[in-house]
């Protein structure tokens, strides 16, 4: 992905359902991206500021309104270096709760986030968006801005339903579904229901990344350690799975051929949502 004439990609972790592991995935993928040599920016778009907390940065945005509406230098001024080489953070704070309503007031609102991020594509190889659980205008801004929309799905009935709704929404609104990829998160392999749900969803929906993130204590304790899993528990199973997930994401973003790339399992798009 790194090139001499840098044109960074935008990877968004999104789901309209909360508690599915978006922030955990965003933090670990951003860390692994930076560790692989890509200059990476992670943007915390969630007023809960969990990503900001994970990186031990104070949840405060200077001139928040200007950041959200004008972008440019006001965004650059807010970017903080993390403890990890090549990984910067745009922190969140409570004022972000106004973001959807502020976006509603500007022209070409759905393109706003993309326009704000565009100048930073020259500086970063990868921009990771950690989005809140939302179905507001902000969600549509994220769909427009992202080159790849990564959706963590807990293999449960409600999460499956939420995922079906999301895909239906994307199709009806005419968004490019080719950039939407799902992966299973918080998987408990011993649970038969999880196994069955995963199988059913894989058959029903296209484009799943093969890596599955387990529900483990290591992942849970990330909040205590306030560090990405590969730093805190480099040999943990969950760390290995996040590494696999990163390889698959990087492969997709590099545009590797799904037919020949062993990492990427591509499914034919079925008309399942009509």
């Amino acid at each position: 992905m790194a090139g001499e004439s840098r044109r960074g990609r935008v990877l968004a972790l999104y789901h309209l359902k909360g508690g599915v592991g978006k922030t955990t995935a965003a933090v670990n993928l951003a860390y692994l991206s930076a560790a692989s040599g890509l200059k990476t920016l992670i943007c915390d778009l969630d007023p809960q500021s969990s990503t900001t907390y994970f990186f031990r940065v104070k949840p405060a945005l200077k001139h928040a309104r200007r950041v959200l509406l004008k972008g440019g230098a006001s965004v650059a001024d807010n970017i903080k270096g993390t403890d990890y080489e090549g990984l910067d953070l745009l922190p969140a704070d409570w004022s972000l709760r106004h973001l959807p309503s502020l976006l509603g007031r500007v022209k070409r609102s759905k393109r706003r986030l993309r326009e704000i991020l565009d100048p930073f594509r020259g500086e970063y190889d990868l921009i990771v968006l950690d989005s809140p659980a939302t179905a507001t205008l902000l969600a549509e801004c994220i769909f427009v801005a992202a080159d790849m929309l990564l959706v963590p799905v807990v293999p449960s009935t409600l999460a499956a339903r939420a995922y079906a709704n999301l895909r239906l929404f994307l199709r009806r609104k005419g968004y490019d579904e080719a950039k939407v990829w799902g992966f299973f998160s918080m998987v408990e392999a011993r649970k038969k229901m999880h196994q069955a749900t995963m199988q059913a969803m894989r058959e029903q929906f296209p484009q799943w990344l093969p890596a599955t993130i387990p529900y483990t204590v290591d992942v849970e304790s990330m909040g205590l350690a306030r560090a990405p899993l590969p730093v805190r528990s480099p040999r943990a199973v969950a760390t290995r799975r996040f590494r696999e997930l990163w390889e698959q994401v990087a492969g997709r973003m590099d545009g590797r051929d799904p037919e020949t790339d062993p990492w990427v399992r591509s499914f034919p798009v079925r008309e399942v949502l009509e």
């Binding site: 004008k70 440019g72 650059a76 970017i79 100048p119």
Partner: peptide
């Protein structure tokens, strides 16, 4: 849109 200041 105004470009962000370079961050050398």
């Amino acid at each position: 849109m105004k470009s962000p200041a370079a961050s050398p």
